[in-house]
Design a protein around this nucleic acid. Structure first.
Lengths: 380, 380
DNA sequence: TTTGTTCGTAAGGTCTACTAACAAACATGA
DNA sequence: TCATGTTTGTTAGTAGACCTTACGAACAAA
C-alpha cells in the first residue's frame, strides 16, 4: 500500500469487470493467509494477523476453516526464545497432506510426469514414450500418464497441471500444436472428465516462467526463453503471466531476426529465430565442424537482437534461458547479454541479467505444480 | 465469467497482496455501477441490476450514494417504448457536473492544457510557452498552466491529469526527463499540495494509450507509438497499462534497429529507432531532397523491424501511431504493417492493423482525463 | 506472589448484499 | 370498465464477514 499523499489511493487497474460479493472477499483473505503460511512456514495465528493486517479473531476463524479441510496443521507450541506471555501455537501448511501431478508434454520423445508435494519437490516420476504420437494417440498417452501418476500418489491430489507445447487458451484447450497434430484439443476438459480432479492446462513456456518465479527466485518481471526443437517464451509481468488476446503471447520462434537474411524456415520465411536457435540447427552446425565458440557466440547475438526490442519495451531486467545447458550456458548467454546491453538503453539496465534456469529439465513439471497451487490455493 | 466445467473457477491472477475488507468490495461494486452508467448512458436502476448482476436493492442503495455526491443524476421517467409495468426512472452520470483538467507536457515548444467534461470533450484550452524552459522554471510554468485552467473550470474539478515526457513512477514523480532537466521531480505531489485537487501524473505515451482505449475504440491489447522529437510508446495489455518494474516500459526510442548500422544517436549508439523515426530527422532527410515516398517507406520498414519482436512476443493485433499525420499516415504506416506481416507469424495476425490515432494532437490531454476518470471513478 | 505480556477465543456491533414482500404505475384483454 | 399481469423501486428482515472489546490461559520477570 502506498501512502495517501496526493488525494489518490494506490493506482488501480482499469477494469472492474464483475461484482464482488463478501464471500469472494473472504476467499481472497483466505488465500492471503494461505500464501503467507506457504512462504514463511511455521507461524502462529498472531503472527499471521500481524503479517496480513487482519485481526487475530478473523485469522483464527480462517485458520479453523483451513484446519477443517486439512490444508493447514498445528505443529504444537513454540519453544524457542524465552518470551513472555502465552506460548504460540505454530501453524503450517499441511505440506505432506496433498499431492500435485505435473505433466510436461513439450519433449519430442517422451511425455514426462511427476508427483510433487506442495513445496514443488518431486516425489515420483513417470514417463511414457511419445515418439511419433499424434492426434488421439497422443491424447490417450497423456491420459495413461496421468492415470499412472494418480496411482503413484499416496495422498489426496490437489490437481493436475499440464504444460503443453503450442497455443493453449485460458480454458485449457490446445488450439494448435503442430507437432502433435492437435487442433482445438480440449485437454483440460477431458482430463477433468476422466479423473474428476481439478486440471489446468497451459503452454509449457508459461508454466516454466511460473516455476522460475515460484521456485527459482526470479523477480516479478521476467522473460523465460525455452530452447528445444523449437523456440518459445513465457512472460511474467508484475507477477502475472501474460497470455495475449489470442493466447499466443511468447510465440517468438518465427520472428525474423536482423536485416541480413538467414536460413529458410519451415514456416516459409527466412531468418526466423528458430533457424538460428533451435537445438537441431545448432547440433547440425557443430557437427558440420564449425568452431563451437563462434557458433554459440553468433547464436547468442541473434537472440539478443531479437530480444532487445522486447526487453526495452517491457522494461525487463531478467531473462532466463531453459534448454540444453551445454549449449546455452557460457558463450551463448554471454553474447546475449552483451548484445542486449549494446542495443538497449544502458542507464536502465545496469542490472540486466541473462542466466540459465536453476530448475533444469524439471522446470515445466514444477511450473505445472505452481499453476495448480495458484488456482487451488491462490498461492504462488 | 467462464463456466465451471473443469473444477476450477475463472483463472485468477497470482498475487493476493493485501486484505480485502467489505468496504473495499462495496467500492468495487460502486465503480462497477459507475462504469456501466458511463459506457451505456441512460439506464434505470433495474437495467443496472441486470447489467451488473447485483440486485435491484443493492443498486438502489449504491445509486442513492452516487446521487448524494452528485456523480449521477435522474433524467426522469422513460418515455419511449410502450412497455408494461411501472415506467423506469432513467439515470446517467452527471456528465456536466464535473470537470477534468488535462495537461500535455510532451511538446518541445508549449505546455498544452484543457478543461474537459467527463466524456473527454474539450471545453476550454490554454497553452503556455515552454521553449527553453528547464528545471524549476519548467515546473513553475506547469503550475501556472494548471492554475489558469482551474480558473476556467465552472464546475467542481474531479482531478488534474498530466502526461509528461520521460520516465514517471507510480507516485507521479518524474524520475528523468532530460529535455526539461527534471530528475526526481515530484510533480504529482507538488501539484496536489498547490491546488488541493487530486492529481495524477504519468508518462505521456501511457496517457495516450489510455485515450486510444477509452475514446478511440481500440482493443484491450494495444501498442501506441508516439513520434515527435523523440520516440516513445505506451502499452496496454488486457486493458491494463504496463509500467514496468523501473517505470520505463515503452521506452523504445533507443533500441537499435536492424543489423546494418545506422546513424549516430545522441545516446552514443548507432541505429537507434530515434535516428530513423524522430520527426527532426525525417524533416532533415526530406529537406535534403531525398525522395519522399522512399524515405517514408524506409522509415516505416524500420519501425516494423523494431516492433516485430514486440508484436510477436505480446500477441498484439493493433498498433496505433501518434504524431504528424502528414508523415506517419500512408506509405510509412503501410510499410510498417507490411514489414510486421513479413516478420511475424502470419497465421496469428490476419487482423494485424497499423493505423493513425483518430484523436489527433489532443490525445495526451484526453488520456490524462482517462487517468483521472480511472483513478477517481474506477471508470475507463 | 505479583505484575505485565502474549495468545487465542467469545460476545456483540457494523457493514454489505441478499431474499421476500409490496405499493405504484403501466399495458392488455375480457 | 375492470381485472390481470408486468415492471419498477423501496421496505423489512436475514446471513455473512470483519471489526472492537473483553476475558481466561499461560508464560517471564521482578
Amino acid at each position: 500500500m502506498t501512502t495517501e499523499v496526493d488525494g489518490f489511493g494506490p493506482r488501480r487497474t482499469l477494469r472492474p469487470s464483475a461484482k464482488v460479493l463478501p464471500e469472494q472477499a473472504r476467499a481472497h483473505n483466505r488465500s492471503l493467509v494461505l500464501q503467507t503460511l506457504y512462504r514463511q512456514g511455521a507461524l502462529s495465528r498472531a503472527d499471521l494477523a500481524r503479517e496480513t493486517g487482519l485481526t487475530r479473531v478473523t485469522v483464527g476463524d480462517l485458520v479453523a476453516e483451513l484446519l477443517d479441510e486439512s490444508l493447514a496443521i498445528e505443529l504444537g507450541t513454540r519453544t524457542d526464545g524465552n518470551r513472555p506471555g502465552k506460548p504460540a501455537t505454530l501453524l503450517d501448511l499441511h505440506r505432506d497432506g496433498h499431492r500435485i501431478i505435473g505433466l510436461d508434454l513439450g519433449d519430442t520423445d517422451v511425455f514426462r510426469g511427476a508427483v510433487l508435494d506442495l513445496d514443488g519437490t518431486i516425489l515420483h516420476r513417470h514417463d511414457v514414450d511419445a515418439r511419433t504420437l499424434t492426434g488421439d494417440a497422443a491424447t490417450r498417452a497423456v491420459h495413461e500418464l496421468a492415470a499412472a501418476l494418480l496411482a503413484l500418489a499416496d495422498r489426496p491430489v490437489l490437481g493436475i497441471g499440464v504444460g503443453s507445447p503450442g497455443v493453449v487458451d485460458l480454458a485449457g484447450t490446445v488450439l494448435s500444436a503442430p507437432n502433435r497434430g492437435w487442433r482445438d484439443e480440449p485437454l483440460q476438459r477431458d482430463l477433468h472428465a476422466a479423473f474428476g480432479v481439478p486440471v489446468i492446462v497451459a503452454n509449457d513456456a508459461n508454466a516454466a516462467v511460473l516455476a522460475e518465479f515460484g521456485f527459482g527466485g526470479a523477480s516479478r518481471d521476467l522473460m523465460l526463453v525455452m530452447v528445444g526443437y523449437g523456440v518459445g517464451a513465457g512472460l511474467l509481468l508484475d507477477g502475472t503471466p501474460l497470455f495475449g488476446p489470442r493466447s499466443a503471447a511468447g510465440e517468438i520462434g518465427h520472428v525474423v531476426v536482423g536485416t541480413d537474411g538467414g536460413d529458410a524456415c519451415a514456416c516459409g520465411k527466412h531468418g526466423c529465430l528458430e533457424t538460428w536457435l533451435a537445438v537441431p540447427r545448432l547440433h547440425a552446425r557443430l557437427a558440420a565442424g564449425e568452431p563451437r565458440d563462434e557458433v554459440l557466440r553468433q547464436t547468442g547475438e541473434r537472440l539478443g537482437i531479437a530480444l532487445a526490442p522486447v526487453v526495452g519495451a517491457l522494461d525487463l531486467s531478467e531473462v532466463v534461458l531453459s534448454g540444453p545447458a551445454e549449449l546455452l550456458e557460457g558463450p551463448l548467454a554471454q553474447a546475449t547479454v552483451d548484445t542486449l546491453r549494446q542495443r538497449t538503453m544502458e542507464q536502465f539496465h545496469g542490472e540486466l541479467t541473462v542466466r540459465m534456469t536453476a530448475l533444469g529439465a524439471d522446470i515445466v513439471m514444477r511450473g505445472s505444480a505452481v499453476m495448480v497451487l495458484s488456482a487451488r490455493l491462490g498461492v504462488s
